[in-house]
């Protein structure tokens, strides 16, 4: 630690003595392009969404127009489909989090053990994360969950159990399974990284003191993972709030609204029903939801950047 501080001071001093002219490199023109494009990308569309949400605006009917006040919001908030979509969004996020963090922690402990071919096994286990969402959704839909030719149907029949029509009778559950399968490797990868940063001397000391595997897990590993788990939860939540492609290619939000989440509802309203005003109001709600999570995440990142 001491050596880094010294080098820092020394290099700072050289800069001050040797290169006053170089020290005054103008950072503004270097940073400005990134800041400007990101600002435009974030603020302009967001402002437009906010503006549209207070307008009567239908893509098919140009005669509809003008200031709507809060009408889009009151209409939306009294519409049961918003609450269905909200509930579906929350259920989807919650269950995927439970599955990925729960299984991810167990798998991380497992892949932290030394075993034969661990490197290859780990590669296989993280593979689903790199499969594009439309491919994974279709593989599950056609080859595994299909009620006639799917593998699950075949297993049910062989065991004499009733065949489950996954997307017909359990649409949201099916999507939760697919999305959890995609995000499990993410949780595993991050929690494994965190476990491996655990001091091996600390583990050794606990073992010397007679800690069994369970005591080890609950009193040494789990507390150490606390921060990593909260980061996984926050990052996954932000992505899971806007799950879209998996719903798009499997159920299209149906049957009825049974598997429509907020993201898909906005898509339906805007690009299928052409109601820009109503969809924008729903968009504003989605942004607010994500921001609640983002505030905590940013705070946690900020703490670590300071380190």
């Amino acid at each position: 630690m001491a050596s880094t501080t010294t080098t820092a001071t020394v290099s700072g001093a050289t800069a001050a003595i040797g290169g006053r002219s170089q020290r005054t490199v103008k950072t503004l023109p270097l940073i400005a392009p990134s800041v400007i494009v990101l600002f435009l990308w974030m603020i302009v569309p967001l402002a437009m969404t906010l503006w549209f949400s207070f307008q009567y605006y239908n893509l098919l009917d140009p005669s509809v127009g003008g200031f709507a006040g809060l009408e889009n919001y009151t209409y939306l908030l009294t519409d049961p489909s918003l609450w269905t979509a909200m509930l579906n969004t929350i259920l989807l996020v919650f269950w995927v989090l439970v599955i990925t963090v729960g299984l991810g922690t167990l798998l991380a402990v497992l892949f932290d053990q030394d075993f034969y071919g661990r490197g290859v096994a780990r590669l296989l286990a993280i593979a689903p994360f790199f499969v594009m969402p439309t491919v994974s959704a279709l593989v599950w839909k056609n080859m595994l969950m299909h009620p006639v030719n799917g593998l699950f149907a075949f297993f049910s029949r062989s065991l004499g159990l009733p065949v489950i029509d996954f997307f017909g009778s359990l649409p949201l559950t099916s999507i939760i399974i697919i999305v959890a399968w995609q995000w499990l490797p993410f949780a595993l990868l991050i929690l494994l990284t965190a476990i491996q940063s655990l001091d091996s001397e600390q583990k050794e000391a606990a073992r010397m003191d007679g800690a069994g595997p369970f005591a080890m897990f609950f009193f040494i590993i789990l507390p150490h993972l606390g921060r990593a788990i909260s980061v996984v939860i926050m990052i996954e939540t932000i992505f899971l709030l806007s799950v879209f492609a998996e719903i798009y290619v499997t159920t299209s939000g149906g049957p009825g609204l049974a598997s429509t989440n907020l993201a898909f509802l906005i898509y339906l309203r805007a690009l299928r029903e052409y109601d820009v005003g109503g969809a924008s109001a729903a968009g504003v709600i989605a942004v607010i939801l994500a921001n609640i999570v983002a505030v905590f995440l940013v705070r946690s990142i900020a703490r670590n950047i300071a380190d």
């Binding site: 969404t49 805007a270 940013v298």
Partner: peptide, 15 residues
């Protein structure tokens, strides 16, 4: 900059 990544895409889909 990182926080801009946390804005859900659906929020700006329409514009």
């Amino acid at each position: 900059m990182l926080s801009t990544k946390m804005m859900p895409a659906v929020g700006v889909l329409i514009p």
